[in-house]
Design a protein around this nucleic acid. Structure first.
Lengths: 210, 210
DNA sequence: TCCAAAATACTACTTTTATGCTATTGCCTC
DNA sequence: GAGGCAATAGCATAAAAGTAGTATTTTGGA
C-alpha cells in the first residue's frame, strides 16, 4: 500500500517539482496539491492523506493555522512542515499546532522522500540543528538564571504561587504568617522585576507551550 | 583533534565493550570511565570531556542526577544518555536535566559512535520513536480538550490572561468594556471549573516543564 | 566577631480580582 | 419564532493581591 501524500505550497515552481518528485516515487501516492491554506482546509478532510507536506508561509492563512484546523478533521494525518526558516518560533508554533516533522526547504529530494516515509512510520524527521533546538527547550535555562536570583525560601514560595495557592494557603503550608509570605512575594517580584503572579511565573517558568 | 569522551556505566561487561569501542575509534579519545555517578561527579570536572555517555540506572545517584550536578561545572560537555528504557518520564527527566541525546542500549556500535559525533557537532541523536515522543509533548492535547469548551472570544481573552495582562489592559486591546472582559473571564472560570487566573492557566496550558 | 543576607512579622493602604445578578443584542438552529 | 449560546455591558460587593515602610531574629561567611 502506497503512502498517500498531499502538499500545500504557494510557490508554483516548487509546488510542481514536489508533485513530480512524489509522483515519481513508487512508494508514494500524491492525492492532493493545493496552493493556499483555505482550499487545503476544505479539501483535505475528504482526502485523508497519510502525510501532508505544507509550507509555513502561505498567502491566506498560514500553514500552521492550516494544521490547527485540519488536526481535528484528519486525526490520522501526519503533518510535515517544509519551511525556508529555522527560527525557533516557527518551529515551536508548528509543533504545537500538531506538526510532527520539520524540514527545511534546502532538504534534498532524497531526504524529503525519506522524511515523508519516516513521519508516516511514526518518526519525527528534522535536521539535527532543529532537533537540538527542540531538545534545548526542555532545559532552557534563561529561566534558571532568574531562579538563581532567589533564595531557597523564595523559590519554595514561587513554586506554590505557580500552583495557584493563595497567600493564606501558602502561609499555612509552611507555617508562616500571611504577612511574611507577602513580604517574600514582594521580594520575589522585586528581584524578578515584575509586579504580578502571572508575570513572575512567565519569567521563571518559560516554556514552549505558552 | 579527537573528540574526548567519557563513559559512566555500572555493568562491567557493557562498560568494557564501550571502552574497547571508543578506544578503537580514530576520531574518539576515551578520557574517563566510571562505574558510578559519585566518582564521575568528582572526576569529570577535571577532565572536561566533549561528550559524556551515561547510563541512567546507576548504583548510587542516577545518571540524571549526575548530569544535573555536572552541568554547571562542565558547561561545554554534551551529555548523552544510554538507557535500556524508552519510557517517556526518563526521557523527559534526562532532557530537562541537560542531556542532549538519548540512545537506547540496543543501538548498534556504529550508530553509537555516530551519536557521539552527532551530539558533539550540535545535534541531538535519538531514534525516531523517541523523537516523536519529544515532539508530541508539544501538542499534548489534554489541554486542548479544555480549550474546546471555550468560545473564540474566551480563548482570545485567556491568552491575554496568560500574558499577565490586567482586565483593563485586555479591554483596551480588544476594544471592550472592562465589565465585558470581566464577564468573559467569569464564564471562562466557570467552564474550566476554576476560580483564579493561575488555576485557569494551569488547567489549559499543561506543559512538561512545570 | 561583625556584617550582610535571609527569614520572619506587623500596620496601613490601593489596586486588581473574583463573584453574583441582571440585561440587551445578534445569530444559529430546531 | 422560540430557545440557546455568544458577545456585549452594567452595578455592587467581597476577597485577594500588590505596594510601602519598618523591624526583629537567625544564619552563614569574611
Amino acid at each position: 500500500m502506497k503512502i498517500t501524500v498531499a502538499i500545500i505550497e504557494d510557490e508554483l515552481d516548487i509546488k510542481s517539482s514536489l508533485e513530480i518528485l512524489i509522483k515519481g516515487t513508487d512508494t508514494l501516492n500524491l492525492v492532493g496539491s493545493y496552493s493556499d491554506g483555505e482550499s487545503a482546509v476544505l479539501e483535505l478532510p475528504k482526502v485523508q492523506a497519510d502525510v501532508v507536506l505544507t509550507d509555513i508561509h502561505l498567502p491566506g492563512i498560514s500553514g500552521i493555522e492550516c494544521i490547527k484546523k485540519l488536526k481535528e478533521k484528519c486525526p490520522k494525518t501526519n503533518f510535515l512542515i517544509s519551511s525556508s526558516f529555522e527560527d525557533i518560533d516557527n518551529i515551536f508554533s508548528a509543533l504545537k499546532a500538531g506538526a510532527t516533522g520539520y524540514l527545511v526547504k534546502s532538504t534534498s529530494p532524497a531526504k524529503l522522500i525519506e522524511g515523508i516515509v519516516e513521519v508516516y512510520q511514526g518518526g519525527s524527521p528534522m535536521n539535527s540543528h532543529i532537533a537540538r533546538k527542540v531538545v534545548s527547550s526542555f532545559n532552557s535555562s534563561p529561566a534558571n538564571a532568574e531562579l538563581e536570583k532567589l533564595s531557597t525560601r523564595e523559590v519554595e514560595i514561587l513554586e506554590m504561587l505557580s500552583k495557584g495557592l493563595r497567600y493564606k494557603e501558602i502561609a499555612d503550608r509552611i507555617f508562616l504568617s500571611t504577612d511574611t509570605v507577602r513580604t517574600h512575594i514582594r521580594n520575589i517580584y522585586c528581584k524578578l522585576q515584575v509586579n504580578s503572579r502571572t508575570d513572575a511565573l512567565n519569567k521563571v517558568y518559560k516554556n514552549h507551550l505558552s
